[in-house]
């Protein structure tokens, strides 16, 4: 029987200690919820990398190209010479290219952020309001009764104020 355990701490270092302990015991799905970005999570839960930079990079490239093509392409659709300049003058179109490039990069970054942070939450996910104020929470997925018992011991040993056993919601989103 799978379940999720939520431990609440009032001190960040306790939460980090619990997370480290859980990880060392072999738990895979550990989330540390905190009111501010916690420093030192990387050391405890491992370094994270995200795909956002690729989104930004390719968004920028697409934008640069799209901007230039927009300016140059539309100018050739209806030839209206102005001021004795070529139909495709490079410097002004680079400005358009630049602006559209940044526009696309911004939108791609937003999209990449949403994708990689798995937002918006379309399925139910466990959380607790206290972690938005001044508590630190640890959410861990346990696959069996014995696992849950082990996790409970580690979390309580680290100094949790409260521990809750919750219905298992995680698997569904992973099966997707």
């Amino acid at each position: 029987m799978a379940a999720e355990l939520l431990g609440l701490f009032s001190h960040a270092d306790q939460a980090l200690k619990a997370a480290g302990g859980l990880r060392d015991t072999g738990f895979q799905e550990i989330s540390l919820m905190s009111p501010t970005p916690l420093h030192g999570v990387e050391q405890v839960l491992g370094r994270k990398t995200s795909a956002i930079k690729r989104f930004t990079f390719f968004g920028m490239l697409t934008g640069l190209l799209a901007g230039f093509l927009l300016a140059a392409g539309t100018a050739t659709l209806y030839l209206l010479p102005t001021g004795g300049r070529p139909i495709i003058p490079i410097p002004p179109y680079l400005v358009i290219s630049y602006e559209v490039g940044i526009l696309f990069a911004v939108l791609a970054t937003l999209f990449g952020f949403l994708v990689s942070a798995r937002l918006p939450a379309l399925r139910e996910r466990h959380y607790t309001p206290e972690t938005h104020i001044d508590r630190f929470g640890i959410l861990v997925t346990c696959s069996s009764e014995q696992d849950a018992e082990r996790a409970r011991t580690i979390i309580l040993a680290a100094g949790a104020e409260e521990i809750r056993q919750l219905e298992y919601l995680g698997k569904k989103s992973h099966e997707q």
């Binding site: 918006p120 996910r125 466990h126």
Partner: peptide, 8 residues
């Protein structure tokens, strides 16, 4: 407690 944007 759990959260999802769908109910909202």
């Amino acid at each position: 407690m759990s959260i999802s944007v769908l109910p909202a």
